[in-house]
Design a protein around this nucleic acid. Structure first.
Lengths: 115, 115
DNA sequence: CAGGCATATGCCCAGATGGGTATATACGTC
DNA sequence: GACGTATATACCCATCTGGGCATATGCCTG
């Protein structure tokens, strides 16, 4: 599995991560709450493990999985350059005014714009 | 393409989005900067378009693509519950208590092990 | 040590997907 | 309207991946 993005592309894996964000769980608990066959859960957990999203602890016959946030921080970091767009639509007015001003300025003296 | 997550699972598509985050580009510009064959760029753009990540504007024979941040906000929103893990110091206590509780419960009946 | 529970793994299959190539469509120019 | 440019699409193929099933492994109890 290439990247953290590919790992969280799978809906069941996202569900597992969401569950683990509230508290750690055993495979059986995940299996029951997600209503997935056990091999399926184990396979997804393997992908998550190898991607560094989860870690496991042995407790008798059970494996208890807990979240490791590191790979998700990578995703979060990748989003950073896009955050300036979050408020862009809200601030459409401001952007419009900003553009108006630029055009006004350039129409006076023929200044050029850079983009 | 199912979800926004599946769309950004592809490295070239993330590259396109990153490029568009700085400024809009034509297909030819993306093609040149990413060194990808044109059909490949067009196909990725189609996925991005249908996923709502980009919008296009016709300019003579060219199609100029610009970013639409909405689907990325979904991804950002999904990350929200995990952000409390970002600052490990703050939540270390809670996690510790959580673990203590489980150990107490299991130590009553049998042996315990951790790693 | 047998037997049962919890989890992991191996195998096969069907569907999805990205790459590559060829072709279609759209537009602008002469 | 012929031609070149810019982009989209159709087609084929190799690969990957998740689902389902069977089975292996590990641990605990009697």
């Amino acid at each position: 599995m290439e990247s953290a993005f590919a790992v969280i592309a799978e809906p069941n894996r996202r569900a597992i991560l969401s569950m683990l964000s509230s508290s750690e769980r055993s495979v059986g608990e995940l299996m029951h709450e997600l209503r997935l066959p056990q091999p399926s859960v184990s396979k997804h957990l393997k992908v998550l493990r190898e991607g560094g999203f989860v870690e496991s602890r042995v407790e008798a016959q059970r494996r208890v999985y807990r979240l490791n946030p590191k790979p998700l921080r990578e995703v979060d970091a990748w989003l950073e350059p896009f955050r300036r767009f979050w408020s862009k639509h809200v601030d459409a007015l401001e952007e419009h005014l900003d553009r108006m001003e630029k055009e006004k300025a350039s129409s006076v003296k023929g200044r050029k714009r850079h983009d």
